[in-house]
Amino acid sequence: MVLTDTHTHLYYETDTDKRAQMMQRCLENNIGRLFLPNVDAASVPMMFDLVKTYPDACYPMLGLHPCSVKDDWEEELAVIQPAMHQHKIYAVGEIGIDLYWDKTFLTQQVQAFKLQIQWAKTLKLPIVIHCRDAFDEVYQVLHDEHDENLRGIFHCFTGTLEQASKVTALGFYLGIGGVVTYKNAGLDKILPQIDLKHVVLETDSPYLTPVPYRGKPNESAYLIYVAQKVAELYQISVEDVARITTENSEKIFGV
């Protein structure tokens, strides 16, 4: 059994001993594939350092997180874009729109999102989308940019069944994480109505920690609890969840 964490910021842990322990816990829980999105220019070397240390388990992605889009967003991208050509990467992300904290830079977020989508198309890579309180805005961009080269993951999906249908109709997969284990999140009602062929698993560590560790820092090893909850909802084995969602991740990332 191999589980794939399609979205983890494990590189935030800079203590090499703690990081090694985290990776060991991943192996103990059959999590053998970790996809790492940076968030800004400063996090690029941190991410690649982890990839260099664990090349058989870690796969890098590059992009500018919408919460990192400020007045200097073009300067940030001027640092990130060259790295896309200097290193092997597996997706452009995480990119998108976030209106939860601040709506000040919506125009710039849309511009950065569209530009990075173009980069992904040129590189023939999938995108990994961050969307918070901005589904309509994100969907409009995807609708405008839609063609046979646009594909990827709608990271941390927590929306409605209608939104899920719109996303999957565009050929995107739904990234399901710790929120599925939360009692009143509602995702447990929606997910069983979506074919598992549209789903991948993620942690978004160190955020969105699943039950039973909610309230504590998340880590990729906790993906097992997400997988167990998904298995329960679909009434299939954890092994089947691991197989199907890992196969889905292989289709997206090509590895």
Rank of each mutant, 00 (worst) to 15 (best):
K197W: 01
F154M: 15
L64Q: 09
L150T: 09
L187N: 02
K229S: 09
M22K: 08
P217C: 02
D195P: 00
A120R: 00
I244K: 03
V138N: 03
T122E: 12
L50T: 04
V110F: 00
M61A: 15
P37M: 09
E202S: 13
K197E: 05
V39A: 06
S237Y: 12
E202L: 11
Y100Q: 10
K251I: 13
M61K: 15
M47S: 04
H143F: 02
V51Q: 01
V128H: 01
I244H: 00
R151C: 11
P210E: 00
R214W: 07
F154P: 10
I95T: 04
Q86R: 12
T104E: 01
A57S: 08
R25S: 08
E202G: 14
L125A: 07
Q24C: 04
Y12W: 15
D204E: 06
R214H: 03
D15M: 14
V141H: 05
M1P: 05
E76I: 14
Q163K: 15
R214T: 06
N248F: 09
D72Q: 14
W119Y: 10
Q193I: 08
I97D: 13
N218P: 01
L106T: 09
V255D: 06
C131W: 00
I31W: 05
F157Y: 07
Y54M: 05
I80W: 08
V167N: 08
S205M: 14
F172A: 06
D98Q: 11
A221Q: 00
A41D: 15
H146G: 06
K88R: 14
M46W: 13
H155S: 02
V255Y: 15
V141Y: 06
L170C: 11
E28F: 13
G175S: 05
V2F: 08
P55V: 03
M23C: 10
I153T: 03
V69H: 13
D204C: 08
R151N: 14
T203E: 05
F113N: 05
L142M: 09
T209V: 12
R151Y: 10
I190Q: 01
I153D: 10
L201S: 14
D98W: 04
H198C: 07
L115F: 04
L223C: 08
T8P: 07
Y54N: 07
A221F: 08
V69R: 09
V199E: 00
N149M: 11
L196S: 10
S220C: 09
S220P: 07
G177A: 00
D17R: 07
H65W: 05
L201G: 14
H146L: 05
D133L: 06
I194C: 02
A231K: 00
Q116G: 06
L34W: 00
L99D: 04
V39P: 01
Q118G: 14
L99S: 05
H130Y: 01
V179M: 12
D102L: 13
